[in-house]
Amino acid sequence: MVSRGMADRAAGAGTELDHLEALRVMIRIREFEEMCRRLFARGRLPGFVHLYIGQEAVAAGACLALRADDQITSNHRGHGHVIAKGGDPARMFAELLGKADGYCGGKGGSMHIVDFPSGMLGTNGIVGGGIPIATGAAFANQHLGNSRVALSFFGDGATNQGVFFESLNLAALWKLPVIFLAENNQYTEWTRTEDLTVGEITQRAAPFGVPARQVDGNDVTAVHEAVREAAGRARSGDGPSLIECVTYRWHGHNEGEEAFAGRYRPQSEIEEWKARDPIAALESRLLDDGVANAASLDAIHASERGLIEAAYEWASAAPAAPVEDALTDVFSPARP
C-alpha cells in the first residue's frame, strides 16, 4: 500500500495555511481525478463517477483549516474531500475498482467512500444527505465536550433540500459546532443554478442568524481563511457558519454524460473558468512570492503523479472483493 494519505495535520489547524501543502493536496486531487477520467474512458470504472477537477481549492482550503480529528461529510462529488481530509488514494482506487482492500471492501464505490479514522464520515449518493449527519456529529462533539468541529460539503443543488434549512435551524438553536460549506459550481446537474435557486445562497442563513460568507472557491487561501474563522467560532461555542465557495467544475456532471446531456454550457464559459485554474493561480503566487521555483513545482507534480500511479498500480493488482462479502456488514455483532 502507498502512503497513508496526508500526514497528520492536527498541528496546522487554526494557523496560517501552508501553501506548499495546499498545493500538494490540490495536485494530488487533480492527478487522482485525471486517472479516474482515463479509467472511465477505458471502461475500467463501474458505476457513476463525478469528477472534482476545477474545485480542488475548496476541499484543500477547507480540510487544511480543520484538525485531523474534526469530521466531514460529503456528497457524490467527494473524491477531493476524502483526499484532502487525509484519505489514501490507493484504498480509494481499490474501492472504485471493487477490491477487497478498498475503503469499504467494494460495498461503497465512488459515491460512498467512508474513512472513519480520518474523520470522513461519508460521501453520499443522496443530495443533501450528509447535512443532518454532520449536524448530528456536531451535536455529539458538543455533548461530549471534545472540541471537534463537523463540516458538511454539499453542492448548490443541496441548498434546495429541506434538511439544509432544518439543519441550519437546529444548529443555530443549539449553537452546534458545525460548518455548512456550499460549493456553488454554477450548475445543479445540467441546469444553471440561477434557474433553480433563488437569491444568494448566503442569504439563506440570514433568517437563522447564522453568519455566512461568500468566498472565491478557486482561491485556496480565501477558503482556508473562511473555514478557519468558522472553525474557531464553532470551537469557542458560537455555533454554526455557512460558507459559499464559488467555483466551477471543468468536467461534466458525471463522466460519460455527453451522450445524454447535449451541450448545456457554453464553451467560452468553460474556457473562462479554466483560465482561473485554482492550481495554476496558487503556483503563480508561490512563484511571485519566491516560495517556489519552476523546479520545485515540477518536483511536486512529479511526486504526486508518481504517488497516484503507484496507488493505482497497487489497487489494480489487489484482489477483488470476494462475492461472499456482499452478505456481510449489515449489522454489527459486537456491543460497543
Partner: peptide, 15 residues
Amino acid sequence: ATIVGCGVGAAAAGL
C-alpha cells in the same frame, strides 16, 4: 428528517 440524520451522525461520533 434532520433529527433522524442527526441520530446517525451522533451515533457515528460517539453517542
